[in-house]
Write a protein that binds this DNA or RNA. Structure first.
Lengths: 352, 352
DNA sequence: TGCAGCGTAGAGAGCGCTCTCAAGCGGTCG
DNA sequence: CGACCGCTTGAGAGCGCTCTCTACGCTGCA
């Protein structure tokens, strides 16, 4: 127990106070607080005691002022359309990010983009040196975010491969994405291995790289996919249903469908059911994402391609931390760490 | 255009630099940057120009160091169970918070509670003076959060009336909640006005004040509700269905149901349909929340009690700002501003 | 003419911390 | 035995900003 009175509200004890109590200098206390390297064990303990007794907590602002490190990272959430992070995908990814940041003793500053006109504010904030880095999600190809971030000169990592023009022209931003193309290939190969011969695809929006990569994966395997086997959706349940109806009209003989996400698969499933087609007997169905709330709830449960979404969130943080540390060692050095592609895994349930 | 070279990456211009360029003192620049009160117009303009030319952005850490104001507020999201902010309710509230914070030029620091053992970390962070205040959501009565926050001595506002023991014993934390009880009364009265005589209630969990308040509202109107008219749910769709089945077994004669939220209403609706009961002809149904993604999607669309969730989020921020400003004027003064109860509104659709 | 009174600017002292640099203190080696 | 080296520790100079206090020039009034 301390013999000193508790400091009044608002006046926290400083390094100075701890130093005085421990009978050492400020510098020594600072060393101990920051790991205690190069300080005699006896002193370390004395200082630790003083810290404990006074309830000392370092002043973050003072520390940031001299180290130029904020201990905070921005997570930018753009809301271009309807679904934000009520989307389970976002929730999982943000959770992964949050966990990993906590492990790195770093705070998560949430920047919610309110609309197209709001990007300027975001840019100002990022450029203002409030955060050490930024994490963002690539949603649409024409999204301004990548260029805003580049202009703000703040280290950043994207979730999902950004698709803006010039992405390859030395303007690369590291990103974390799952192996959309490989996963799609695996899904289609699985359908073929089941003996299916007319495998259709319901694709996602053109302006999202994930959708395009999945389409490419489908094409990789089905070089000679017949006509009328590809329909366009937009990742919604409704669009999946519509696309399924279209496909059935053009190719009533199809015996399998691979959809670019689970939500569209559930729409497709509904239409198949309505038409009296049995899944998987008449038509086998494979989705993508393994959004369990959907994939396990459908009847029959959906065979789908799983990606480790929370893990991708964590990876985004690790990648960013690597950039940050590299920058610290050698500022401005062009040691852009590569992006990471995480593997996918086919989860077999009953639909295929 | 500036004739000076752009400063190297990482070395932003300081007040000093702006002062030199404008030919004034640091103090004057500071005054201009902070509103420009008490500075001759001519100088104000000269300083503004210099700021523009150099691209000066104030150093947040330095400012915080002296003002003791962070310009940041924590939003604490506890995840005690299954649904987090994939819950549309949370999303809307956080959006309101984010918008209002932006309007106050304040940052949102997201604190995601990882589990029961994580509260200590949260407490440490809050106590560490990183943020000016905290916003939290009251989920369960036995939640530790209120006491953690109190111990950290950080101004806070709750979303939803906290129900911890001693809430009334001078330990009051301001909160924002909707008029759960009044809304429930309105819902039940509406059912009675339709001529219904045996109005049942599917209640939410005992340990959430919102659920209890809604139950109280129901009882306010139906002082003499007959036996077997109240069933217990837990706010999930599934529990609504189960409770509905129970009610029908006990009181096959019921002609109306008021559920404590929309999700349970949709569960109840499903069961009513399965039993061949028509809504609203045989049984009228009223929900709570006006979660449009549910209420408008059901067949028939749900009559329900709407609360302005985003508005409640904004109110939480305004309330916190008031506490903060009061604290600044007179630190520690016991001017705890009262809590706010927002009105509800009955939204009539087809189910009642 | 002298002096109070006002409005505007600058000087300077910190805010709490980190980090460099030099001093002190054995112990070792030539 | 003195020079040197490595390990600890302390002194002190800032980091960039705010804010008080003082200085200064001007007007207005006695």
């Amino acid at each position: 127990m301390s013999s000193m009175p508790e400091p009044a509200h608002g006046s926290r004890p400083t390094l100075e106070a701890v130093a005085a109590r421990a009978g050492v200098s400020r510098a020594t206390v600072s060393r101990v607080v920051n790991g205690g390297a190069g300080v005699r064990q006896a002193l370390v303990e004395k200082v630790r005691e003083a810290v404990e007794e006074l309830g000392y907590v370092p002043n973050h602002a003072a520390r940031t002022l001299v180290t130029r490190r904020n201990g905070a990272v921005a997570v930018i959430i753009a809301e271009p359309e309807f679904r934000v992070f009520s989307d389970p995908f976002f929730e999982q990814q943000v959770r992964g990010i949050s966990r990993e940041l906590t492990a790195h003793d770093t705070q998560l500053v949430l920047l919610w983009v309110e609309g197209p006109g709001d990007y300027e504010r975001i840019g100002r904030y990022l450029g203002g040196g409030h955060v050490d880095g930024a994490l963002a999600f690539s949603v649409h190809n024409d999204d301004e975010l990548p260029s805003i971030i580049r202009r703000a000169q703040v280290p950043a990592v994207f979730g999902g491969r950004p698709g803006w023009p010039g992405a390859t022209a030395g303007l690369a931003v590291p990103y974390v994405d799952c192996d959309n193309r490989g996963g799609a290939r695996e899904a289609v190969r699985h359908l073929l291995s089941l003996g299916r011969e007319r495998v259709a695809h319901i694709a996602g929006p053109h302006d999202q790289t994930s959708a395009m990569d999945r389409l490419d994966g489908y094409r990789d395997v089905l070089l000679d996919a017949g006509p009328g086997l590809i329909a366009q959706g937009d990742f919604t349940e409704e669009s999946g249903a519509r696309a399924m109806a279209e496909l059935l009209e053009q190719r009533p003989d199809l015996d399998a469908v691979f959809t670019a996400n689970d939500l569209m698969a559930s729409g497709a499933l509904r239409v198949l059911r309505e038409r009296g087609l049995r899944v998987p007997e008449d038509v086998a169905l494979v989705g993508f994402d393994d959004m369990t709330s959907i994939a396990e709830a459908t009847d029959p449960p959906l065979t789908t391609v799983r990606q480790d979404i929370e893990g991708m969130g964590r990876l985004m943080v690790r990648l960013l931390m690597r950039v940050l540390n590299a920058d610290e060692a050698e500022p401005g050095a062009g040691s852009t760490p590569g992006s990471v592609i995480t593997p996918t895994e086919l989860v077999r349930r009953a639909s295929a």
